[in-house]
Design a protein around this nucleic acid. Structure first.
Lengths: 79, 79
DNA sequence: ATATAATGTCCAAAATGTTTGACATTGAGC
DNA sequence: GCTCAATGTCAAACATTTTGGACATTATAT
């Protein structure tokens, strides 16, 4: 009688790539350097391989000068 | 010639405790259960010991039914 | 005074995010 | 053709977040 409600982890979505290309001329490596991360990390996050830490997420939206929720959203049932 | 610009990690601030007590009657354990985390995790995050993952942060603001930036903010130079 | 709920602490292990270095692919320009 | 910058991939180390269990403190109620 499985009464255990498993909370699905959900998936964090982002449009970093779109904003990076639309609002800046930054490469992944350059963005990484500006926000204190490596280019591999930017690649992985843009590709949705994993969600960034809160700190990194805030540094990214700050660099872009856009509101947080314009870059990151949440799909509760995703993946 | 230290040309290395260290990006400070910065500190993520939250007012989970205030909202939990003001807008809900939830205990830390109950909130934890609702958002799929343990009570130790809620305690640590409320106490500012570390920032939550993106997933957990989104599940929390979702439970509270308040905008993301009403709960979480960023102090770029903090700690 | 003792019972109970809520909060807090500590610790080790598990899970997730990040770095480093190396190498592969793609597209643009010469 | 070739070169070069940008992007992508992989694996191993490392850092941070999360868990589970045990135990302590505080306040409230009986």
């Amino acid at each position: 009688m499985s009464k255990l409600k498993k909370i699905p982890k959900g998936k964090v979505l982002n449009c970093i790539r779109r904003i990076r290309l639309a609002r800046t001329n930054l490469t992944q490596a350059e963005l990484g350097k500006l926000v204190g991360a490596t280019r591999q990390t930017i690649i992985a996050i843009e590709a949705g391989k994993y969600a960034p830490s809160m700190e990194l997420a805030f540094r990214i939206v700050r660099e872009f000068e856009v509101p947080f929720d314009e870059v990151f959203s949440f799909d509760p049932d995703g993946s």
